[in-house]
Every structure is written in C-alpha cells, then in structure tokens.
Amino acid sequence: MTDRTKRFEAAALPHLDAAYNLARWLLRDDQNARDVVQEAYLRAFRFFDGFNGGDARPWLMRIVRNASYSWLHDSGRHADGVEFDEDKHSQEQVSDSALDRPNPEQALLQKIEAARLDAAIEDLPLAFREVLILREMDEMSYDEIAQVVAIPVGTVMSRLARARALLRAALCQERGETNGR
C-alpha cells in the first residue's frame, strides 16, 4: 500500500458511516447509496492531492453529496429538487395551524415512531433533506454545511428553518389524519 493510499484511508475511512448515511438519505436506496459512496471515495482518492489538510469530513461529504446528485441527475430523477428553486420553495405555504401548536407538537414528537419520522424526512425535497441530515445527524456547523452544499451560510440557515417547518407540518398533519380529523 502506498503512503498516499494510507494517508487517504486514514483521512477518509473514519467518515464512511456519515458518508453512507448522507448518500442513503439522498438516494433513498441501499444499493445505489453503496455504489455512489464507493465511486465517491474513488473520486476523492484521485483528488486527494487537492485536499489541503484540516478536517476531511466536509471535503469528503461534499464529494459524496455531489456524486449523489450526479447519480440522481443521470438516472433522470431531477424532479426531486435537483433543479432547486429557492424562491419557489420558500413561498410554499405551510398551514399555520400546524405551526401554532407547540405543546401538542412536543408531545407528538416525544411519541413519534421512528418509521414515521423516517418517512417524513424522506418526503422532504432534496435540498431541505440534505441540510437537515447534515445538521441533525452529523452535527455539522452552518459553515461546514455551507461548504458541503456550496451555498452561503445564510441560505443554510433559511433552508434549515424551512426544512424543520415542513417536517413539523408533515408530522402534525399526519397525526391529524390518523386521529380522523
């Protein structure tokens, strides 16, 4: 094993679970996520010389994220928000009734089943899903997320707020339906 290979593996492999998790959430498919992550790692290895040290995670996650987007693009699934329109999405209405219920919401969130939460996250538009995953699961800073997604920090914050609002609305709405209201 060459020295460069060793350094690459030492820098990149510790983030494999995070990389796979991101690809899996973006692609919503085990096998595709697996293929994309392997391809992304190979790509990262080829461009490892361009990595200027420091924390490898944002650098690697950006490659994994871009590889996931390429895959979605090539497989003709742009409808899922690959061509993202910030303005259009930001103007979508979330029903106020869903947002103005903090207390029932807390109780709901404490009881919510993992499967329902997963399904609701999977239903979020891609651009919101990715910032949410990076923030809540990988606990990345706004700055790191901005690097991964290649958007300004302000946009990270507004997308994150939007992602949470959409998720809340989806969860509350679901509950309303199951209660027969």
């Binding site: 494999l16 679970d17 796979y20 085990d30 697996r34 919401e105 089943e113 997963d118 809540e136 949470r164």
Partner: peptide, 20 residues
C-alpha cells in the same frame, strides 16, 4: 424537540458490511 426526535429516532444508515 424536533432535533431531539431526529437525533434519537431517525435512522442512521451505517455503511453496509463489505463497503469498507
């Protein structure tokens, strides 16, 4: 509450065996 629910309950997909 939402963050806590995601952190606690949403699935973290671990890399499948063999990928490494």
């Amino acid at each position: 509450a939402l963050s806590a629910a995601i952190k606690r309950k949403a699935t973290r997909h671990a890399a499948p065996p063999g990928l490494r």
